[in-house]
Design a protein around this nucleic acid. Sequence first.
DNA 1: GATACCATTTTGGGATACCAATCTGGTATC
DNA 2: GATACCAGATTGGTATCCCAAAATGGTATC
Lengths: 221, 221
Amino acid sequence: MSQMQNVERQLREMILALEVGPGERLTERWIEGRFGASRTPVRAALLRLETEGLVGRDGRGWTVSPINLAELEQIAVYREAVEVAALRLTCGQADKSAIDVIEAMLDSCDENTPREEWHRVGMDFHIELARLSGNEFLFRAVRDAMTRLSRARWLEVRDETALGRAWLEHRAILAATRLGQADEATRLLSAHIVGSRNRLVTSLANDRRGLRARGFAVVAA
Amino acid sequence: MSQMQNVERQLREMILALEVGPGERLTERWIEGRFGASRTPVRAALLRLETEGLVGRDGRGWTVSPINLAELEQIAVYREAVEVAALRLTCGQADKSAIDVIEAMLDSCDENTPREEWHRVGMDFHIELARLSGNEFLFRAVRDAMTRLSRARWLEVRDETALGRAWLEHRAILAATRLGQADEATRLLSAHIVGSRNRLVTSLANDRRGLRARGFAVVAA
DNA sequence: GATACCATTTTGGGATACCAATCTGGTATC
DNA sequence: GATACCAGATTGGTATCCCAAAATGGTATC
């Protein structure tokens, strides 16, 4: 594994895990020292993370992208379009065996599973479902959208009932997909995405003061 | 304007204008000499163009992305999803004055307009229409998809009737959008995209031999 | 003539040196 | 005490080295 990919991967993890806060300034020299790499791979990593929307330019200099509520709403609209299109493709396919793998993913979570794992599986559900479409561009769009949403979802205050409801919705989407019921499956998926967005934005807007107190830049809608 | 942005812009133009052929090998040193920049900005440019899909890694080393017919078909599905979603948003908006600007764009082309300009305006029509949605992600998705399609459309053998038909379809889409008829507008848009894709892929598949003879790598569907 | 092999060159990945722009902290001035 | 200003430190942008790996091309061998 090259240094460049290492820096990119580790820095992305730090950002997604909120070990560097949204809105925080980044200097190439700090990253250089932090990961023991020189500026060449650091710069490459920053350029790629910029296209992922995780870091941005702040005049001269780099900044961890703030949480932007308006952006989160736009991403929800975007992912609804691409996820629905992907799911429609999947419903039209004959082979539904791959759906079992995704169902097993959901099964792997129970009350003993750490919160972090629930978080990851909840994202991977959507990503893997999109992958089944066989369309590389729809897949990447969903994956990138989930990456952009990741930090915000991690900050969201979610109660147990909300988590349970999301899981039920995931299972209902899978069930309809397995039967090839495209209209029903996409209707459920749309509703799921819209509901998730509403809960997410509401939660963050309510917590905005607290999040800023923790040093996280949160831009209003 | 920094060197980095210059190299990126100029190299992108060379690739899109087919001044470096699809499938051609690129060396960082050649680009360095060609544009009079050092390797640092050259590498930054390559990293960005990679995310745009215009260049790719070929083991160790860089290659101008070949024309890939299977990819073109997938992009058509992708752009249909995002363009339809964007258009639906636009139809729901009260202010339709911006549509006149796009209509004027179409008007600016007549029989004296160079082919290159028709080509550009045909792309910008879709990009600017998506911009009206106000959703940054749908807009970028359309813009990036059109960038990826650009070279292929340039290679397409298009007769006058096909160009004229496309223009009529563009106008019909605008007309329905202006009236806020979302279902009709998106139906027309979908048909337009599917039709364009079919003509494009058919044309390239037929010309494949000739294109390869010109040194352009064309990957089959 | 085909092929295995080795020396040379070329290439991308990485490290580092340098620069101009900018930021910072302190100081002198009023 | 506020402010204008200047010197030093910091930073991203760029150029340039170095290196290991891979491609290249010529040659000896069969």
